[in-house]
């Protein structure tokens, strides 16, 4: 068990393609870190650099006290779970689990003990003598997990381990991995493109975009105080509404409507207003500080309904309790404490 320190790490490929750009993350011992971002954001490359499967162009990666930039993958004391599981097809489940230990010269009795323990935890006991091709997707996923567990490494690396599973199994495995990690308290780095996985599993989320870090924070921090318009739109479902607005004399103006800010600072000039669907409500009382919204269509979600419409010309989604009265036009209020303002040019939070 160890901290993993990533310091100003960059990765360039031939032709000056910069896949990862000066990323620094300090991962605590036992922490579950999720790297999340759209495809091509460099999250997998970063993970593979920690694993030693990609060389580091610039910067330093430390596992514990040891700088591992030039250390072979097998000697980094890490275990990795791959997206397509990468089980050895010619070996039985037992051999798959034992392979890494055998090559490290672990005594036979110790190997047997750890394989038995891991297969008990992962409920693989009855499959130990099967080949991977005789297993279902979920079982293969468990074997891949087991292969990592038996090693008792300093850190687990997960490369989108759930993306090949169907939706139901994914939710189940999500919980299992999280519980397992809690129990073993092994430092983990988990890569996913699914913000829901990031939100539900992470101790801290690292949002990556175009090879650089947009924000590092706990799921709630990232959700409640996104540091950029990108993070705001990427984290949360439905995505946060981003509306073109402007500041005029301390007031926030959208088209020809004005939003009450309850004394919050609003700089002059063009702005991007971010507001989550659940941070708006139907207006009551007189029209003071209300904005008018035209309804396009409604998605019924059971517990709530998601209303899609336009605020002046800007698209907007609004979450209302199921059974709330609807008409073609709605008068709504925005929660002034839950509004996010971004610089429309840089995308940074103001």
């Amino acid at each position: 068990m160890a901290q993993v320190t990533i310091e100003n790490v960059s990765k360039s490929y031939a032709g000056d393609v910069r896949a990862v750009n000066s990323v620094s993350i300090a991962i605590e011992d036992g922490e579950f870190i999720v790297l999340v971002g759209p495809s091509g954001c460099g999250k997998s490359t970063l993970l593979r650099m920690v694993a030693g499967l990609e060389s580091v162009t610039e910067g330093t990666i430390r596992i514990g006290e040891r700088t591992v930039n030039e250390v072979e993958p097998a000697e980094r004391d890490i275990a990795m779970v791959f997206q397509n599981y990468a089980l050895y097809p010619h070996m039985t489940v037992r051999q798959n689990l034992a392979y890494g230990l055998k090559n490290r010269g672990t005594p036979k009795a110790e190997i047997d003990k750890r394989v038995a323990e891991a297969s008990r935890i992962l409920e693989l006991d009855q499959y130990l003598d099967r080949k991977p091709r005789q297993l279902s997707g979920g079982q293969r996923q468990r074997v891949a997990m087991g292969r990592a567990i038996v090693r008792e490494p300093a850190a687990f690396l997960f490369d989108e381990p759930l993306s090949n599973l169907d939706a139901k199994l994914r939710v189940q495995m999500r919980g299992e991995i999280k519980q397992l990690q809690r129990r073993l308290a092994t430092t983990s780095i988990y890569v996913t493109h699914d913000q829901l996985e990031a939100m539900t599993m992470a101790d801290r989320i690292v949002v990556l975009n175009g090879g650089h870090v947009e924000q590092i924070g706990t799921p709630l921090e990232v959700y409640r105080a996104p540091q950029s318009a990108f993070v705001a739109s990427f984290i949360g479902s439905p995505a946060m509404n981003l509306i073109a607005a402007r500041g005029e004399g301390g007031r926030l103006v959208i088209g020809d409507q004005t939003v009450t800010m309850n004394g919050a600072e609003v700089p002059n000039g063009p702005l991007t207003l971010g507001v989550r669907a659940e941070d708006m409500a139907l207006a009551s009382g007189n029209g003071d500080g209300h904005v008018e919204m035209a309804i396009d269509y409604v998605e019924e979600l059971g517990a709530s309904r998601l209303v899609h419409g336009r605020l002046t010309d800007e698209r907007l989604a609004l979450s209302l309790p199921s059974g709330a009265p609807l008409s073609d036009r709605l008068s709504i209020t925005l929660d002034p404490h839950r509004l996010h303002l971004f610089d429309p040019d840089s995308g940074r939070r103001i």
Binding site: E72, A74, E75, M80, F82, N84, G100, N103
Partner: peptide, 17 residues
């Protein structure tokens, strides 16, 4: 598969092995 080779690279330090 590349990932199988990579998994092996993590599990076994010896190229020949």
């Amino acid at each position: 598969p590349v990932s199988v080779r990579e998994a092996a690279a993590i599990d076994n330090r010896s190229r020949l092995g």
